[in-house]
């Protein structure tokens, strides 16, 4: 029998050694923007185990299609056509349905459509760079886009970001909220990147690198990359010492 009651157990604590630390001087902007005191550890209350949900009805037809969602009629974004797909799971391995994903990225030349980006690569008039999707009943999502180009950024004298797509992810509780980045298999810039290297465990960095997925490639159209995302798991609600009120 399927348990349809929403889960209300507390989330597993974050492994703060697995995530990047706040202060990572190789990524210079973190120096003035990192809290120096220890975080205050607390158990979850109802403010943490609840969170907003988003319905599939809010999505437009082309929200997950960055090739077309900013393009003029009949036009499409310039670049290597790719599909990115995967599942959102929690740490227990359970597929999470109804998860809102928002993505943003540079165009194929490595330029963002943003007033603060003055990289000399040109804007693509048919590429906006944002998209979103909501996972299906199995936790699956997909998007179509062009592969973002690497770009230089002012950090060290010659730092280049590897090709990457930014992901913002909503779980079921506000404390599952996560922003991360997806990298591409085989990119030699990943091990050189101060932002990727803000993560100290190489095993953790690997979790952000999407493999080429030839099985889901559409012949003569678009290559596929598979990117699974894992959010915090939560304690079973059964047998939990949970006095009334929470």
């Amino acid at each position: 029998m399927k348990n349809t009651q929403p889960e209300t157990g507390a989330f597993f604590p974050r492994d703060r050694d697995w995530h990047p630390k706040a202060y990572t001087p190789g990524y210079k902007t973190s120096v003035l923007r990192s809290p120096r005191n220890a975080l205050l550890s607390l158990g979850n209350t109802i403010s943490e185990i609840t969170g907003p949900v988003f319905g599939h009805d809010m999505l437009g037809e082309r929200d997950n299609d960055l090739v077309l969602n900013f393009a003029k009629p009949g036009a499409s974004a310039i670049g290597e056509r790719i599909i990115v797909h995967g599942r959102v799971l929690d740490e227990r391995g359970i597929g999470m349905s109804g998860v809102l994903l928002e993505f943003w990225q540079a165009n194929a030349g490595g330029r963002y459509r943003h007033k603060k980006d003055n990289y000399l690569a040109p804007l693509d008039p048919n590429f906006g760079g944002c998209g979103r999707a909501i996972t299906d009943e199995n936790g699956a999502y997909s998007l179509r886009t062009v592969k973002p180009g690497p770009y230089p950024w002012p950090n060290g004298p010659n730092d280049w970001r590897p090709s990457h797509i930014h992901f913002s992810v909503f779980g079921y509780g506000f404390v599952q909220r996560l922003i991360t980045q997806m990298y591409f298999e085989g990119d030699p810039l990943i091990p050189l990147c101060p932002i990727a290297n803000a993560i100290s465990d190489p095993e953790a960095i690997k979790r952000l690198v999407a493999p080429l997925d030839m099985a889901n490639t559409i012949p003569f159209d678009a290559r596929a990359y598979k990117f699974d995302i894992v959010l915090r798991g939560r304690r079973s609600t059964m047998f939990e010492n949970r006095p009334e009120g929470n």
Partner: peptide
């Protein structure tokens, strides 16, 4: 258990996506 996907900075262009 799986490990949570590690966080990465939202970067300077978070506005484009959010």
């Amino acid at each position: 258990f799986l490990k949570e996907s590690p966080s990465q900075t939202a970067g300077p262009y978070v506005h484009i996506g959010c």
